[in-house]
Write a protein that binds this DNA or RNA. Sequence first.
DNA 1: TATGAATGAGCTTTCATTCAT
DNA 2: AATGAATGAAAGCTCATTCAT
Lengths: 212, 212, 212, 212
Amino acid sequence: MKNAPRERASTKKNGGSRERILNEALREFAEKGFSGARVDRIANKAGTSKHMLYYHFRSKTGLYETVLEGAYGGIRFAESNIDVDHMNSVDALRSIVRQSFDYHCDHEMFVRLVMNENIHHANHIDEHQAEGNRAIIDILADILQRGSMEGSFRSGIDPKHLHLTISALGFHFVSNRYSFAKIFEMDLESPRARQERRELVVETVLSWVAAH
Amino acid sequence: MKNAPRERASTKKNGGSRERILNEALREFAEKGFSGARVDRIANKAGTSKHMLYYHFRSKTGLYETVLEGAYGGIRFAESNIDVDHMNSVDALRSIVRQSFDYHCDHEMFVRLVMNENIHHANHIDEHQAEGNRAIIDILADILQRGSMEGSFRSGIDPKHLHLTISALGFHFVSNRYSFAKIFEMDLESPRARQERRELVVETVLSWVAAH
Amino acid sequence: MKNAPRERASTKKNGGSRERILNEALREFAEKGFSGARVDRIANKAGTSKHMLYYHFRSKTGLYETVLEGAYGGIRFAESNIDVDHMNSVDALRSIVRQSFDYHCDHEMFVRLVMNENIHHANHIDEHQAEGNRAIIDILADILQRGSMEGSFRSGIDPKHLHLTISALGFHFVSNRYSFAKIFEMDLESPRARQERRELVVETVLSWVAAH
Amino acid sequence: MKNAPRERASTKKNGGSRERILNEALREFAEKGFSGARVDRIANKAGTSKHMLYYHFRSKTGLYETVLEGAYGGIRFAESNIDVDHMNSVDALRSIVRQSFDYHCDHEMFVRLVMNENIHHANHIDEHQAEGNRAIIDILADILQRGSMEGSFRSGIDPKHLHLTISALGFHFVSNRYSFAKIFEMDLESPRARQERRELVVETVLSWVAAH
DNA sequence: TATGAATGAGCTTTCATTCAT
DNA sequence: AATGAATGAAAGCTCATTCAT
């Protein structure tokens, strides 16, 4: 946790200082928000100087945007990586819900970053980042159609709204974890709690789209 | 708590600077986060000087905490204000879901504040604030039991998880509005969109708890 | 120590708030210096409002000057109060040295105030205050002359320098108490230590002026 | 102590801002006391910005402590530098008294700093600083013993009290210069006055320790 | 006489960013 | 590629002082 293990002086010339800065920046921005983040702290934890940071990223904002881009790149990859075509619609959807839920749990930093973005009215999300995240809608549309034809799903479900629901349940579980745990004295961090909640979320989504 | 000056329901012309500061602070903290918020800006918009801010609230943090307290006080009141006893369980639950959804929509500032709190690991939520927000669990438990006896709800539903689901769907609709709208080119702010989404959320919750 | 005993609501009208402010101000200025002193703290400890302080003393500086005047008035009185005429010169001088030493010990606040004054180049001491403190020189001059005639003192001793020596030994014992105690691990505050040191000081002064 | 930047004996043109700050800070703290001292003023006079001050010393307090340390380091050196072994005890003691007196006269800033420390109960003097200042006690003890064996000094003189007396007479001459000069209309700053007083102090000390 | 609210200047401290080496 | 030093703007906070009631 303290100091991310040094990448053993890899191939070419820079000892991976760019990567180390990026890692620490992700953590820092996610934990403190953009204004709360400190350029010094990032440089220190990354084991470099501020100079390097500015050399690679031009400014705090530049660094932030690079971090954000990386994070959105991550989810895009995760979502598009689901092989869902040779499952029946119910299994396919269940699988997607689980994977989405897991992704949020496994990438708290991403979640926190997105929270931040929303606090600032998502000013930094550009078309380029948005673009890669729209594949999921097509996948869901496809599944919904198959499900409706198979008779297992209702028809008339808007895939965007389905995605919104799936996302909401996964995102919120991670994003609001601290306040919820504190107020309602719930355990929301243990693997057990996560498992349990995940299945409830699957149930919820499936019962909503279920035919009848 | 120990902020001395009396509440005085806006007497003549200049009193009430405390209230004005509080209002602007809510807005500022919600829009910029704690670190992004500027004490100068708050004071200016409130039409006073920084000094008054410190006079009334002792520090930026003190102000933030007072704002937070007010915000949590608000939702507590809203929730405990639902008269639900002479409805059948289905109507009661529907009514609660709607009211919760509406509360989130109507109090974007509250939502943003809670986002912030979670970014900072909810350090500022104290027992006092938590306490007042737990009534909803009892209300839901009651409805669930009645529903289960009436045969309209499944048994075995944990009211905390039900609340988590309801909250997630309301909260996320507001909190992630900007990034979602941008990425998926959705309208999430118009009254129409809100109406539509609200009913989908009601459906979702009801179909989950429905018997069979 | 905490709160100087309230003067039981004396004769006329003001409940002694002026006096209480003065007492606390002496303590505050002596402990913190002029710039370190806080007007709020003085008013609070005196159990009044800042308004009263300004009403009575016009400004922080005005208060400081009044305090200083009181303090210098005190030593003047103490010194001129010594009845020394029907003692032989040695006893008279011994008595004066003791009394001066004791005065410094008993009036640490005065000592601290004078330290402060010297840090600020004694800007606040005016002729009026100086005037009353010169009697001691005449007294010493008289004793020196008698002693020289009696054959117990050397002649040619400058009474001002004698006073300077006496003052130095008393003043420094109080003023530099903290640093000395810390560096040399000495006890300088107990009655015993004071007694002991006092007699050494007497010895020192007497051996210096002694004939032979 | 943990103030990073290397001491670099004034290389080219701009380095050495640390030293310049330190010099001005000594002056400022000595003249105005800790609370009266202004960070702006120090930075300006040193020809830098406030930022550099904080960069090198972390806080106003940190700067103050560094200044203090330097000052105490100075007197330690001065005292331990006296070569006293091939003098007879009387000459040795006379030499020490003179040197101590001169040190105080030549380092008014040090004196003022110590006054300040005492006003604040010597909170900033730490063991490290105290340690180096205790050598003088051993030196005096040695001289006293030799003197007593040579028959020129009384026996039974406590070297700490001797040091206290020597210090008092030197310190007070500088520390209380302003108030004394004002009240008693004495010249205490001219070289002549200093010379004169110095010899009186020597006399005083020697007559006190003299055998009979 | 007394109290809470207000004022404004100024203080200490922080931070992103750049420069020289 | 890397380090320490420098910059300047602005942030959070404090204080003596005054006003209205």
